[in-house]
C-alpha cells in the first residue's frame, strides 16, 4: 500500500462532508481512488483549532469537462498527443469526502464529527497504511457515518474500505481485523434491509470474507 500522498485542496466543506479540487495528472500519479481513507491537515493549524486532522472516505470523484473536451469527444479519431493533453489540462476534478472522524488536539482519534469543518484550501492527503491502522483501531463508530450517506454507493464504499483497511492490518500482523469489522457491520445493520447488499459487495472484493 502506498505512503501518504498530497491529493488536492478543500474547496467547500460542511460538518459531514467536504469537496476537494484536484487534477487528472495528480489522480493518475497517486493511489487515490473511490473508497480511499484520507485526511485533511490545515497548512498552518491555528492554535485554537479543535482538531489537528480530519479523516474521511472518498465517496465520489467527479471529472469535469469543458467545451473543448465536449468538442473533441465526438471525433472518431483523436490525435494521440491531443488525447493525452486533455489529462494535463487545468480541468478540475472534484473529490467528495465523507467525514468519518478527527484527531483531537490531544492526539486522540475520535469518531465524532469534528467540531468544525476543514477550512478552504486545507490540504488533503491519502492515509498511509500506518494511518489507516491508527484510525481504524479504536472501534467501529466511524462506520455509522458511511451508512448514513444516502446519496453515496454505500455498499461499494464499505466493501472497498474493508478490503484496504484489512490489508493494512494484515501487513502489521493482525489477521482478524476483517472478521471483527464484519461482525460490527452486521450488528450495525441487523435491522437494516441494506445488510445483504453490503455483504454481497464485501464478498465481491474480499471473497470468502462475508
Amino acid at each position: 500500500m502506498p505512503q501518504a500522498e498530497f491529493v488536492g485542496r478543500v474547496l467547500e466543506a460542511t460538518a459531514t462532508r467536504f469537496w476537494v479540487g484536484s487534477r487528472v495528472s495528480r489522480l493518475e500519479q497517486s493511489a487515490l481512488s473511490f473508497g480511499s481513507l484520507v485526511r485533511v491537515a490545515a497548512e498552518k493549524a491555528p492554535q485554537a483549532a479543535p482538531s489537528t486532522q480530519i479523516y474521511g472516505i472518498i465517496s465520489q470523484i467527479r471529472l469535469r469537462s469543458d467545451q473543448l473536451v465536449e468538442s473533441i469527444a465526438p471525433l472518431d479519431q483523436i490525435e494521440e498527443s491531443i488525447y493525452s493533453d486533455q489529462h494535463q489540462r487545468n480541468l478540475p476534478i472534484q473529490i467528495e469526502v465523507l467525514v468519518l472522524g478527527h484527531k483531537t488536539k490531544e492526539g486522540q482519534i475520535s469518531y465524532l464529527l469534528p467540531p468544525r469543518p476543514p477550512l478552504t484550501l486545507a490540504r488533503l492527503y491519502t492515509c498511509s497504511p500506518e494511518e489507516v491502522r491508527e484510525f481504524t483501531s479504536r472501534g467501529w463508530g466511524y462506520l455509522r457515518h458511511m451508512l448514513r450517506a444516502d446519496d453515496a454507493p454505500v455498499a461499494e464504499m464499505i466493501a472497498v474500505h474493508l478490503k484496504r483497511a484489512a490489508a493494512a492490518h494484515k501487513a502489521a500482523g493482525n489477521e482478524n481485523w476483517l472478521n471483527e469489522a464484519l461482525h460490527a457491520l452486521i450488528n450495525l445493520l441487523r435491522d437494516d434491509a441494506r445488510l445483504m447488499t453490503v455483504l454481497r459487495a464485501v464478498n465481491e472484493v474480499v471473497p470468502a470474507a462475508a
Binding site: 490525435e79 494521440e80 498527443s81 493525452s84 493533453d85 489529462h87 494535463q88
Partner: peptide
C-alpha cells in the same frame, strides 16, 4: 511544446 505523439509539454 508538441513533438511526435507524446503528451505536450508545458
Amino acid at each position: 511544446v508538441m513533438a511526435g505523439h507524446e503528451t505536450p509539454r508545458t
